[in-house]
Nucleic acid binder design. Structure first.
Lengths: 141, 141
DNA sequence: ACAAAAACGGACTAATAAGTCCGATTATGA
DNA sequence: TCATAATCGGACTTATTAGTCCGTTTTTGT
């Protein structure tokens, strides 16, 4: 079991963080990403391709091809990635899986889960891909 | 996708809350639970059987058989159910799925997710099955 | 005694997610 | 020009989860 996101979404997040951290390299091949993250090349490749479609990532074919960020890393939030890959079900559905749960007929944990869900969403919305790029964030001397 | 728990776990939680809410009925058949919760009879039956093995639920065969709580509803926390069905991976694993993530080498959201995870766990640990039984909680006149 | 109705157990099937493979296309550099 | 190395697309396979089926056992009420 994963925690909050699908495996595909986890890989997407890992992948885009990797791209951000290694921006100076220019195009980065799926091969390299997969090797460094110890995941499947074909799978991360497919996953990044869906981010290409949504304009988060740019891809280049050919010998020196690979992937790179389509936008400024500071403008890409983790939430954006999650919504693209997994949708917003995590932030809408009842945590107990009750289809009828809502503000009219809340489940036992409805009011308690609400703030946590909002905090999770907020964490993802306010965390950008650039935030942990050592170079950009100035954390490295 | 489910939010935090497997479908099986969601059903277990729904089922045990149902048992608590309808304690006065004594034995409650899988048939009735399934019908009221709009889920599969066979599946909820199987799920409750694993709670029987862990001493949360008691089962009785035969014509008037069914399921009932094995312990005082105030002593059964939601967390207990979650740990039995899904284990504690949700509270241990990296939310980005990074195997190396930990306090030594934290992932980008490690420090932010920690408190949320603890709050989630705490919510489940402090919410008992009795809490929302209308009769026991005195919410019903 | 016996029919009915329940959980139990185990094997089975279905659905979904995860991951793989391969041929086609595109671009580069020698 | 041509070999090489990359993404792309689609079909495919595998793994996991979800859900079903059915015969057996147990218990109760008539």
């Amino acid at each position: 079991m994963t925690v909050l996101f699908s495996r595909k979404c986890e890989y997407a997040l890992q992948g885009i963080l990797y791209l951000a951290e290694n921006q100076e390299q220019g195009n980065i091949s799926a091969e390299q990403i997969a090797s460094d993250l110890s995941i499947s090349k074909d799978f991360i490749s497919k996953t990044l391709q869906s981010l290409v479609k949504d304009g988060i990532v740019i891809s280049h074919r050919g010998k020196t091809g690979g992937f790179s960020l389509a936008r400024d890393s500071e403008s890409i939030s983790l939430l954006e990635i999650v919504l693209i890959i997994d949708g917003n079900g995590v932030f809408e559905s009842c945590v107990l899986g009750l289809p009828t749960c809502g503000s009219e007929s809340p489940c036992p944990v409805h009011s308690k889960w609400g703030p946590l869900r909002e905090a999770s969403r907020n964490m993802l919305a306010t965390t950008t891909v650039s935030q942990f790029n050592p170079v950009e964030s100035g954390l490295v001397i």
